[in-house]
């Protein structure tokens, strides 16, 4: 299954049973794009995955509105008991998480494979 969105380049399922989904984000996620980003992040949850990995490898910039979208997602997945992991944060995006101390709240991994294998 493949879907695309302005801030989400691709959504792919790792297994036929749709228990693990990788959401590939891309570009600069700021006040201009965060609403579309947030809306797209919630789409895979209708299939009730066990694990959701947000691949941030190609996210070159993220401000607090992008971070807020992920915090809203975190609240939702906790309610739905979905295991959320963020993978491949660039140094600049990682810095935003550190400044806001959210690096201790989210499960962060260097890459998607590490997040799948964890």
């Amino acid at each position: 299954m493949t879907e695309t969105n302005n801030a989400i380049r691709n959504i792919r399922w790792i297994d036929p049973e749709k228990t693990v989904v990788v959401v590939e984000a891309s570009g600069e996620i700021d006040l201009h794009r965060s609403a579309a980003f947030q809306e797209a992040l919630l789409k895979p949850l209708k299939h009730k995955p066990q694990r959701m990995i947000v691949d941030m490898t190609d996210v070159s910039y993220m401000d607090s509105s992008g971070v807020a979208s992920l915090v809203k997602l975190l609240s939702r997945v906790r309610r739905d008991k979905v295991d959320l992991k963020l993978a491949g944060l660039t140094p600049r995006v990682q810095s935003v998480f550190e400044i806001t101390r959210l690096d201790t709240v989210f499960d962060l991994y260097p890459g998607v494979q590490e997040a799948i294998d964890s």
Partner: peptide, 18 residues
């Protein structure tokens, strides 16, 4: 308060930190 994990309200903290 950053220990209150919720969306929004982080901009002023980021500006003062950076």
């Amino acid at each position: 308060d950053l220990d209150d994990v919720r969306p929004g309200g982080l901009g002023v903290h980021i500006m003062s930190r950076c």
